[in-house]
Design a protein around this nucleic acid. Structure first.
Lengths: 146, 146
DNA sequence: GGCATATAGTTAGATAAACAACTATTCAAA
DNA sequence: TTTGAATAGTTGTTTATCTAACTATATGCC
């Protein structure tokens, strides 16, 4: 029985991703406590734009592992919050380029600090080499299925 | 800088849990391909009831790491699908006990096989000891934050 | 040029999650 | 025994995801 590394009864945590749900909830609580009116999903889009501003919605789909309707609505809501603007591309009129507003630029330092804080709390007591192993395994899982 | 094991730029995958999202999407596709009209979230509730039938909604909250309104609505939808029944407890009239229907019992083997298949595909090429390390790290993360 | 196809994005409908506010029941202490 | 707190569950609202169907623009082949 090759590769049958999991038995019934061990499946649940892996599939539901309790660890990442816990991380996301913790970070959301920190955002709320800091008075930031921002969801983790919205933050994840801003995160990609802080890395490189002016991405298209399609690029945001790939970067955030979401489909097109999800990005459309996240950008809708980020526009309502005046954190991004849609700018039609001059080269290709099908494309919207998404640009950060000055307000969104101001959020970067504070939210990234909270995110680092969350991860450090989450990984407290875990040796660095085990973290590396874990990241490598999760990357393989992602590559195997995507 | 104690415990500062993550640098900016490495945060995203961990927080968003791309690996577990990929696993869940893959399993959902298998359910759909098999003609099963069942979401992964509904399946995760059935999974707990296959382990022990007749749990209360509160017990399902703890077991599935969800809040009470989420379980209320998942049980609503599972009842619509005629996969579970709410039975008021005789001991404590506040409590609903959730029981599987014969149809739900029939789904166990097929869906568990698909779940095992998904995990084996996901973990293809990962040594068993690294899987153990990964599971241990994710458990610590969960315990640190919960 | 014209037409098929692919690509970028939007809309609609269903399910799910987070939060707050609510009802009903139980339990314990004054 | 009554009152107040705790517990179990529901409802309403907002945001997010998935699927499918849709519009508009671009591309490539004839």
């Amino acid at each position: 029985m090759p590769n049958n590394q999991f038995k019934r009864g061990e499946l649940y945590s892996f599939i539901t991703g309790k660890a990442s749900i816990a991380i996301a909830r913790c970070l959301q609580k920190k955002f709320n406590a800091a008075g930031l009116n921002l969801t983790i999903e919205q933050w994840s889009v801003l995160y990609q734009l802080w890395k490189e501003d002016g991405k298209s919605q399609q690029e945001l789909c790939l970067a955030t592992f979401r489909d097109k309707p999800s990005i459309t609505r996240l950008v809708d809501n980020l526009e309502k919050l005046k954190l991004v603007r849609r700018v039609p591309s001059k080269d290709d009129r099908r494309i919207n380029l998404i640009y950060l507003t000055p307000e969104a630029l101001k959020l970067q330092d504070q939210t990234m600090t909270l995110a680092e804080e969350t991860l450090n709390e989450a990984l407290h007591g875990v040796p660095a080499n085990q973290i590396e192993t874990c990241k490598a395994v999760l990357q393989i899982v992602y590559d195997n299925l995507k």
